[in-house]
Computed example of a mutant assay.
Amino acid sequence: MTMNSSGRNTILAEELYEKGWSVVDGYIADTFRKQLLKEQRELLQHGQFRHAGVGNGQNFAIKPEIRSDKVLWLDESELTPLQQKYWDTMEQLRADINQRCFLGLRAFESHFAMYPPGSFYLRHLDRFQNVQYRIVSVILYLNDDWSENDGGALRLYFTGSTGLEEYTDIFPLGGRLVVFLSGEILHEVLPTKKTRISITGWFKDEY
């Protein structure tokens, strides 16, 4: 039996509350995933992606030695029908996380992300001095197929039961959703051997 979105969100929010991160496979229907993947590829072919940087405002800089992905930010006022459907799905998730975790999440921002072969993103937090408003990070993978030999895992660092730092590697399987606390979970993207595609976003405590 396929779990409905409410059931998935309940599990996700509970795990986020208990340990600071959660992974749910098959979060969206595979037909929807393929549609988003097709749209992403078309946007990439039209040259709308840009090299991602670090920092923001006057501190923004392209630093390929730190991260080497390309992104296309989504504009909430100019979403395509597919993007709007995804946005609505995230809005329900935001409400369900708020109901369980009391994080005061108010809004969402997101971009398509593409890691070409050989690219990576070194260990970091998503919430830092210039983006204090990021509370929960949300990543939805769109890849058609993936194996561990393809690399590109998201490595999450956390404090284990012994009090020592541990980590878990999460591979970018299509339809897999990962959420974690932006200001607490250090993470990195390990070098990928083939093109790695996702929609990455953040729930914020401001509009």
Rank of each mutant, 00 (worst) to 15 (best):
Q132L: 13
M90V: 13
G55M: 07
H187Q: 01
Q48D: 05
L43Y: 14
L79M: 12
L125W: 01
P81K: 05
E39I: 07
G20K: 15
R123I: 09
T10I: 08
R127V: 02
Q48N: 08
R155W: 03
L74G: 09
L190Q: 15
R176T: 13
L177M: 13
P116S: 12
E206Y: 02
T159H: 06
A113P: 07
G152D: 11
A13Q: 10
L79A: 02
F102H: 14
F180A: 11
R67K: 04
S22V: 09
S68E: 01
V178E: 05
T162M: 09
R8H: 15
G160V: 08
R196S: 08
K34S: 12
L37Q: 04
M114G: 00
L44A: 04
S182T: 06
G26A: 05
E78I: 06
E14R: 14
D145Q: 10
L105R: 08
K19N: 11
E76A: 14
D88H: 09
G118N: 04
F102Q: 11
N130I: 04
F180E: 05
P172H: 05
D25A: 13
L105N: 13
G163V: 07
L103M: 12
L82M: 01
S110Q: 13
I185G: 02
I62F: 03
E166H: 08
V24I: 14
E206S: 15
S198F: 10
T31W: 00
G175H: 08
Y167K: 05
G26V: 01
G104K: 10
P81Q: 04
K204H: 08
Q40T: 04
C101V: 03
L74V: 09
P117S: 12
G160M: 09
K34H: 12
G55E: 07
D145G: 05
N4Y: 01
E18Q: 15
R8V: 04
F112V: 12
I139Y: 00
Y115S: 03
S119D: 06
G7W: 03
L105C: 09
K70E: 11
I11E: 09
D75H: 11
N9L: 05
K194F: 08
W146N: 09
G55P: 11
L82I: 00
A153R: 04
G175L: 07
C101D: 09
F112P: 10
R196H: 02
T162P: 07
P81M: 02
F171D: 05
T168L: 02
V178F: 02
Q40E: 07
Q45H: 09
I97V: 14
F120P: 10
F120V: 01
D69A: 02
A61F: 01
D144M: 03
L156Y: 08
V136E: 07
R94W: 02
Q35F: 10
